[in-house]
């Protein structure tokens, strides 16, 4: 009995139709939160004593860093669900999540290096956090490369799901070891954000930005998943109806 909803959840069509209604709300929420947080953080939050205004890139850097990590877990968990319950939708979510995650890690690295220029005086510093995110981007690259390498889609899905799961076991180990490596080679004086330097008035807009970015991420993930659904289900009747129905209302019924 209880499995009914799970299987409905596993149906791409159900997901596609259900999310239709969510999209406008998500869009409004995401843009609203990001605008509020952005203006608050960039315009009204107090200036940092040491870093002056350059610290404000934190309002993008930190939320994106959080999400690029969660995205890996979302990808791996989707893959696991797909493997265990043999459902199609989770694999589509997984495939949609990988390039988004890669994009997010690139944003983390870019903002980190822009931040590093005024703070450390170099574009790249082998800082524990930046190094970890560099490795995370390699993990995403591996999953994407493996996914692309297979002709057969089912194999591509399952193989990259296994790789993502192996990566999940490894991520905490990689993080701990990179942290350890960093403290071994450099005294920890270069940390960008010491806990004491953050004032609560700086934190509130950060929270808004984190929530905003999460909603935005959800929106992008759903949109990518919907594209993937249409691509994979293009031969099924409901997608054909959907496409034909739309073109009919527009008055362009041309079809070869």
């Amino acid at each position: 009995m209880n499995w009914q909803w799970l299987h409905r959840l596993g149906s791409p069509r159900w997901f596609y139709e259900k999310t239709n209604a969510w999209l406008p709300w998500l869009m409004v929420c995401a843009w609203g939160l990001l605008l509020v947080g952005g203006i608050w953080g960039l315009g009204f939050a107090p200036e940092d004593a040491k870093q002056r205004n350059s610290y404000r890139i934190l309002y993008i850097h930190a939320p994106v860093a959080f999400i690029s990590m969660s995205c890996y877990y979302i990808m791996a968990i989707s893959g696991a669900v797909g493997l265990i319950w043999k459902m199609k939708l989770p694999f589509m979510v997984m495939k949609a999540a990988a390039p988004i995650g890669l994009g997010l890690t690139i944003v983390v690295l870019a903002t980190g290096s822009i931040w590093g220029k005024p703070t450390w005086g170099t574009w790249w510093e082998w800082d524990a956090r930046l190094t970890s995110y560099l490795i995370l981007s390699f993990l995403y690259l591996g999953v994407i490369a493996l996914q692309q390498a297979f002709q057969n889609r089912d194999t591509a899905d399952k193989a990259s799901a296994i790789l993502a799961l192996v990566g999940t076991v490894n991520i905490p180990i990689i993080y701990k070891s990179v942290d350890w490596w960093y403290t071994l080679h450099q005294p920890a004086t270069l940390k960008i954000v010491g806990k004491s330097t953050i004032d609560p008035s700086m934190l509130y807009p950060l929270f808004v930005m984190i929530v905003g970015f999460y909603v935005f991420f959800t929106l992008v993930l759903i949109l990518h998943t919907r594209t993937e659904i249409l691509r994979r289900e293009s031969r099924s009747q409901w997608v054909k109806d959907l496409v034909l129905g739309k073109s009919n209302t527009k008055g362009e019924g041309a079809e070869s």
């Binding site: 149906s11 199609k88 289900e233 031969r235 099924s236 054909k240």
Partner: peptide, 10 residues
Amino acid sequence: LNSHEDAAYG
């Protein structure tokens, strides 16, 4: 195939 929801042929 229609009963398989995910794959139908025209």
